[in-house]
């Protein structure tokens, strides 16, 4: 290859990289993909389940977990839940476990869960639940907020704002194939 052509190619590749960078930056996604171990206290925070019994995130250790912080009063939260229900049905047998943590009232959560047919465990809390989401990096305490935890208990992705099957699937499915230890 002659020199001018070589320079042209390098510049073209560079400009594409810059454009890609600007594109992804401009997409407005609030995603973190830094792999971290959550503080043990967060995984062991006991919150009330719909059956009245307390549960903690560490109860599902060894599964690939998708922890979704939500509320019935949050419209963008309601939008994504039907996709979570579908994913739980499809990938639950492979070891995927959705857990919903509602910043809400127990009665409203029960009624909504029945209405839309939520097929994964729900925990309900107030400030204690907001604090759990903050510990996962949700500094604003805003909703919806979704955390993916691998079989080793590491946080591999967090996302503030609505998500969907198309975004979660490619992250979750390879984790399901990974061994627990």
């Amino acid at each position: 290859m002659q020199k001018p052509a070589q320079v042209f190619l390098v510049v073209a590749v560079a400009l594409s990289a810059l454009a890609a960078g600007l594109y992804f930056r401009g997409s407005g996604e609030r995603v973190s993909t830094t792999v971290t171990a959550p503080p043990a206290a967060v995984m062991d925070t006991a919150l009330a389940g719909l059956d009245g019994r307390k549960a903690k995130l560490s109860d599902w250790k060894g599964k690939v977990m998708v922890v979704n912080f939500w509320a019935t009063w949050c419209a963008p939260c309601r939008k994504e839940i039907p996709e979570f229900i579908r994913m739980q049905s499809r990938l639950g047998p492979k070891g995927l476990q959705f857990v919903g943590i509602a910043i809400d009232e127990m009665d409203k959560v029960k009624a909504y869960a029945q209405e839309v047919g939520i097929n994964y465990p729900l925990l309900v809390g107030e400030i204690d639940a907001v604090e759990v989401s903050r510990a996962f990096g949700n500094e604003l305490g805003a909703l919806p907020f979704t955390v993916i935890i691998d079989r080793q208990g590491r946080v591999v992705r967090t996302e503030l704002g609505g998500t969907n099957e198309a975004k979660l699937g490619p992250v979750v499915e390879p984790l399901l194939d990974a061994p627990a230890n």
Partner: peptide, 8 residues
């Protein structure tokens, strides 16, 4: 926020 998040 119009960006698609709600605050407690």
């Amino acid at each position: 926020a119009d960006a698609g998040v709600c605050y407690p």
